[in-house]
């Protein structure tokens, strides 16, 4: 299953720059990133080409890092693209813990990345239902 690097940080200036510096130094290419913050701290998520190397580099830079399973779905960058996927999750009572999307080619292709509460067989389920679920190599090789 595909993973992304999730990093704990204090909510203060310079923390993200330290992370991107560590990733650049380790030759890691960032595909997408998302940040959420809570009371005084934040969590940064990096979808990268080399997750294990990214995690090691971020740990070396002093951050607590976890690799978290994600499901990435390729979809049309058109009206209703995302609306073909989310009802499927609803039908299985799956809760989206976190998600973000990015466009691969404007008007053509986009990727939606989910963290869900029960990820184990979600990829297979979505594939069966006509979604284009990305393999690890697809995702890391973008």
């Amino acid at each position: 299953m595909a993973v992304q690097a999730v990093v704990f940080m204090q909510n203060m200036p310079g923390r993200l720059a330290r992370m991107t510096g560590a990733l650049a130094g380790a030759g890691v290419n960032i595909r997408a990133t998302a940040i959420s913050s809570s009371e005084g701290f934040g969590v940064a998520k990096f979808l990268v080409d080399k997750p294990e190397i990214a995690a090691a580099a971020l740990k070396d830079a002093g951050f607590p890092v976890a690799l978290k399973n994600v499901v990435a779905v390729k979809m049309d960058d058109t009206v209703g693209g995302l609306d073909r996927i989310l009802p499927l999750l609803q039908s299985r009572n799956i809760n989206v813990e976190d998600a973000y999307g990015f466009i691969l080619e404007r008007g053509k292709e986009a990727v939606f990345v989910f963290e869900v509460d029960q990820p184990e067989d979600l990829g297979e389920f979505l594939s069966r239902n006509g979604c284009s679920v990305m393999s690890e190599s697809d995702l890391y090789g973008l």
Binding site: V6, F8, S36, S38, F41, V43, K45, P64, V65, A66, L67, K68, E97
Partner: peptide, 8 residues
Amino acid sequence: FRGDIKEL
């Protein structure tokens, strides 16, 4: 740290 903001 297991990557979960709720857990934190």
